[in-house]
Amino acid sequence: MDGPVIQTQELTKRYGDFVAVDRLNLVVEPGEVFGLLGPNGSGKTTTILMLLGLTEPTSGTVRVMGLDPARQPLSVKSRVGYIPDQVGFYDDLTARENLIYIAKLNGIPREEAYRRIDEALEQMGLKEVADRPVGTYSRGMRQRLGVAEVLIKRPSLIIMDEPTLGLDPEAAREFLNTIRDLKAQGITVLVASHLLHQVQAVCDRVGLFHRGRMVLEGTVEALARQVLGGGYRVYVEAVGPQAAILEALRRLPDATKAEAMGSERYMVEGRRDLRGEAARAVVEAGGSLRALQLEEPSLDDVYARYFQEVEHGREG
């Protein structure tokens, strides 16, 4: 497929006077994992509903794989897998029966459907429990069943709303691996979430939503550079002449900031990973290095900083 998988132009959704999504311009390229981030009520779910044609935009355009979800809902929905927030199944049916129903709704011929269902259940590690009623499933199993369900239509795009909400850390990590697997299969993935560190771990690019607007967009590194100034923080532990060491660290190329944090601890912020240069600088300044630690730019920081600034901006 050529061209973006998702493309929206000035996409807007109003509920009465309330603007839930405000002039959104979003482009997601094939094979990407894109994260929609934002606090509660910032418009993530509304955006997803418009992408699927489940609600109509007030204005603006949406194209999903070049199709308009409002005019060609069947074509869009047969190519896009959607795992809603807190996905639900028919509890008294088995996993397999649940999937058979979905396969029928997709018009997949019986033989083919059974093959795909077996495959999908196998891939999601649900083969042994496939004939148990879904009512007996744990939260994590349901979430995996959600993925199995969308896999049977062989989608080119999967949209997940808060997929790791309510999962324990282990299950969440496994689920993130699942997302990586999907990406490896060439499937484009759109994840809406507010669990930033998880999103950060799998997303190629993210868009940060705030009150219906996408205020920031790009790779995590780019956002860190944009919002935090220096994207990378290096913590240095060293003994020796403090003033000289600090001065040497400050003068590193690409360093945006360096400060002492106690008598033997320093922090350097840079536009890239400055560990090597920092080690050399400490030694050259007559200190001896004890430890060196890189703190990668964290989406949490970007987020916290951004909203801090927004709040300040509003008060000031």
């Binding site: 074509s75 929905k77 639900g88 028919y90 509890d91 018009g107």
Partner: peptide
């Protein structure tokens, strides 16, 4: 209430 409705409506049916 069982949250199956949006999943079903996300299938290619009206």
């Amino acid at each position: 209430n069982r949250r199956t409705l949006s999943r079903v409506l996300a299938q290619p049916i009206y």
